[in-house]
Design a protein around this nucleic acid. Structure first.
Lengths: 326, 326
DNA sequence: CCAGCCTTATGAAATGTTTCATATTAAAAA
DNA sequence: TTTTTAATATGAAACATTTCATAAGGCTGG
């Protein structure tokens, strides 16, 4: 904002054409060749840049979408944010980022701000069930918010089955599922369901431990101690609901003198490989993060909003990462 | 955007007051008690939300700032983004996020978009030296962009000295500095300088290895091999320019049969502790990320823009994390 | 009771676009 | 040459706000 930024009127004057003509040029609407050239020259000479606020006001469309996340300081969310941001920039959309710390009131407040900002759409991953602005293109990640809101998620159920299947295949006879955080009716809850379903089908004895946030460490210790006999853990395979948890559990067990993967094998969920090239932290069920991001953007920006699917489940895959025997 | 969103005019009519009065109420400008009540009641009844685009157009101020980062899919950047976002939301500012993949043209393009969007300010961490929009509040992270652009960074030089000091203190007699990426004139270059300066002062023989991006793994192997004698590494302490590199080097060495920290001690830089509670990955020099974020926001939003410092250096600290003997 | 003063509400103007009804121009047909 | 038609440039109006000059109202002091 030098002195005052040049406006379309200035460009029109400089080029000796009408205001509407300048507008057309900047919106890609066909215009006489000679006019286009004059306008472009004048615009460059004056250093004109279109004012998105005036455009947004008049046209009612802002080329801006909002991304609402619980955190961005978390490997899964940050990769998601990165890919979504890239996909949007590629399509000449800008991205407003809101972080909510997973708090209901913050999530609601975001929706208010979003309405004020007249965004063209919202992609949100919320921890709470909230009522969504009607009529505004909206895509939810990992949570079904309503019949008209498409939800994009990994195939968590199959992922859970896959984890159980792998553990059994690798020789486990007494697996367990561990998670922190109470069930919150999101798609991710299905990871445990899938695990349980497979163990039942195979008639294998299994454990399920879902802890509320809080004194998890103590409770985990208690859980492990209660499954110890003669210094040996009776559980020989653990499926953790996230990679972060898997890493914590691994450290915890190693501190107890239990070897991973010799004594107990661990599989996580997410598949974040942040520290690059070859250094995996745990065996895991990989979420197709890039695919999730692109699906969200495609759904949000879809021209035809009549036949949008209610739930898109994307395929997961298993990757060994040192906490299993394969 | 239901049918059409209610406007101030609608609110004014509903409340039986003038347009200007409604405006005042929503801008916190004092107004007669009875008026305020009428307006607020009418606004609530109609579900009115202020239109930020109209406001932005007329007032020329948008309560929006742009954050430009090379990536957000990286523990240091994502924590930074998180804290900056939080600080901004707390002050009722929104944040537009741009990721550039560290590419010069993308970084420049961002500045163009930023100008179009009439943001109230920019916080940027760029890998390239770029000419900045004049007259627009701007704060740079880790790089001095010009005399009028404040730069916020950790005290990288002291951090480098501290790392060297620690290694020597812990018994190393032949330390090395490793980094990937050619020097790019950013503040982070000073990490190596600090390391070197301390080694010189203490008259300790040391190695410096700065690699371009590319075939780093091969070159690192070559480097290590050239410092091996009878299967023993002559280097006994490594200061890596980042934690990510430290983790890679650790894995690499362990694969070569060299034990960490018994045979060689490693210190990284950044201090990201993403996998939560107590699980550190490497000994490190911790950057005060939250402090950096808040300093950026404070500087950017400072009322008095006359006496803004050119460079703010924030103190770092050492933390042991298992790759050193203390 | 009135003049003067201060406070506060009012609504027109301005912000920089897009859109659309109208005017202009050029080309084609008569 | 004149008329018709098609194509395209024009500029006023609209978008929802803020701002500011003006009007209205309420007090105070004479």
């Amino acid at each position: 904002m030098k002195k005052t930024m040049p406006t379309m009127k200035d460009v029109a004057q400089e080029a000796g054409v009408a205001l509407g003509t300048v507008s057309k040029v900047f919106n890609g609407i066909p215009v006489g060749e000679s006019y286009r050239i004059k306008v472009e020259a004048a615009a460059k000479k004056l250093g004109y840049e279109v004012n998105q606020y005036a455009r947004g006001l008049r046209a009612g469309t802002t080329s801006t979408i909002a991304l609402i996340l619980p955190h961005v300081d978390h490997p899964f969310f940050s990769t998601l944010a990165q890919y979504i941001c890239e996909a949007l920039l590629q399509r000449s959309y800008r991205m407003l980022l809101y972080v909510t710390a997973a708090q209901p009131e913050a999530e609601r407040e975001c929706l208010g701000m979003v309405r004020q900002n007249k965004v063209d759409g919202v992609i949100a991953l919320t921890y709470n069930q909230l009522e969504v602005v009607e009529g505004l293109p909206f895509v939810s990640i990992d949570r079904c918010l309503g019949p008209d809101i498409p939800c994009v998620a990994s195939d968590n159920y199959t992922g859970g089955r896959l984890a159980a299947e792998k553990l059994l295949e690798l020789g486990c006879v007494h697996p367990a599922f561990l998670r922190v955080g109470s069930p919150n009716l999101s798609e991710t809850d299905k990871r445990g369901d899938g695990f349980e379903s497979l163990c039942r089908a195979k008639q294998v004895p299994y454990e399920m431990l879902r802890l509320d946030d809080g004194a998890e460490d103590i409770l985990f210790h208690e859980f492990f101690r209660s499954h110890m006999e003669d210094g040996k853990l009776s559980i020989d395979g653990i499926f953790c609901s996230t990679d972060l948890l898997a890493c914590r559990i691994r450290t915890m067990l190693e501190n107890l003198g239990i070897r991973v993967p010799e004594d107990v094998q661990i599989i996580g969920f997410d598949g974040i490989r942040q520290f690059g090239t070859g250094s995996l932290y745990c065996s895991t069920i990989i979420q197709p993060v890039r695919k999730i991001a692109e699906t969200c953007v495609d759904l949000l920006l879809a021209k035809n909003r009549s036949n949008i699917p209610a739930l898109v489940c994307l395929p997961v895959s298993y990757a060994s990462g040192g906490t299993t025997n394969g």
